[in-house]
């Protein structure tokens, strides 16, 4: 089966460099994902400087109203504008997603590289810790952190980031170990490249695309996790807006004003879907098996 994968008739003379066919067309999942995430990010950014109403503005008293010209998304049980709450929630959700990705990325990559690229006992020790962390429920971790630091956006970020770092560490370790077995790493060692040079020049560049995909998926998970934590009252406290708390508040009034539940629900779905599609798109774009000619 040697030439099945290279069965492309490449009319090359021996000394003529083969022009690389670079796929100019972006994968659709990348485009759709970027658009969705971009939309949410834009709304979140706008909410920092402008929302139709102030977040704590109970207005003229129209409570639990349906969508109208004055309140496009309707109002909640205190008469606050739902659209404004939703917009501010977008910013909140993205801050949580990005910050959790950073926490999980820094922690996970450090642990993964140390486990995969140093001594065996470091690997065994770190992996046991990672396994323990994977088995540890995010919710329990969040409760512990909230107990210590109080309920806030950043408590949620730490909880989600730390528990997410376990998966990132595992993925990093597997990929680091794979790259270290490649001939080009042996070649680098024989060329005098040390541990640090090997990690920074060969391992990280060959591992990061896979990690970026994992981090995107983690970001989607973080949005969901933050919504759950806020729903349970372990997330950002009022007056900060959060989609999870919007859901929780709307729960008792679902039958009177369904928009209060539908809108944050849709917002969560769009954001998570966007991040997952973005992850898939990056995978398609950077997978070395899909480019080059191997």
């Amino acid at each position: 089966m040697t030439d099945l994968t290279t069965a492309v008739p490449a009319a090359t003379g021996a000394a003529e460099p083969r022009p690389r066919r670079r796929a100019r067309r972006l994968p659709p999942s990348l485009v759709v994902g970027a658009v969705l995430v971009g939309l949410v990010a834009l709304v979140g950014l706008v909410s920092l400087v402008w929302t139709p109403y102030a977040l704590d503005d109970t207005g003229d008293g129209a409570r639990l109203a349906g969508p109208s010209a004055a309140h496009w998304g309707g109002t909640d049980r205190l008469g606050r504008d739902l659209l404004s709450q939703l917009m501010a929630g977008a910013g909140n959700a993205l801050v949580v997603a990005v910050a959790s990705m950073v926490v999980a990325g820094v922690l996970g990559v450090t642990v993964g590289v140390l486990a995969g690229a140093t001594r065996r006992w470091v690997d065994v020790t770190l992996l046991s810790a990672v396994d323990l962390l994977i088995a540890f429920p995010t919710l329990l971790l969040a409760m512990l952190i909230v107990t210590v630091r109080g309920a806030s956006l950043w408590s949620a970020v730490w909880a989600i980031g730390i528990s997410g770092s376990a998966v990132i560490a595992r993925v990093t370790r597997v990929n680091v170990a794979r790259v270290l077995r490649e001939d080009y790493v042996t070649a680098a060692h024989a060329a005098g490249t040390g541990w640090w040079g090997t990690v920074t020049r060969h391992v990280v560049p060959n591992v990061w695309p896979t990690l970026l995909v994992q981090l995107m998926l983690l970001g989607g998970g973080a949005v969901l996790a933050e919504a759950s934590l806020s729903y349970l009252g372990l997330g950002a406290p009022p007056p900060q807006a959060s989609w999870g708390r919007l859901l929780q508040e709307a729960q008792s009034t679902m039958l009177v004003q369904p928009w209060g539940a539908i809108l944050p629900g849709v917002a969560i779905v769009v954001t998570v879907l966007g991040l997952n599609l973005l992850g898939d798109g990056i995978r398609e774009r950077t997978d070395p098996n899909l480019r080059g000619d191997r």
Binding site: M1, D3, T6, A7, V8, P9
Partner: peptide
């Protein structure tokens, strides 16, 4: 729409021994 094999013809008789030789990318395995 890329053509990987183009007008390949050969035949093998009963009890025959046919060799198909080519370098990588020639389409022999395909």
């Amino acid at each position: 729409g890329r053509t990987l094999l183009d007008g390949v013809s050969w035949s093998l008789d009963a009890g025959g021994r046919l060799g198909i030789v080519g370098e990588s990318g020639s389409g022999k395995s395909l």
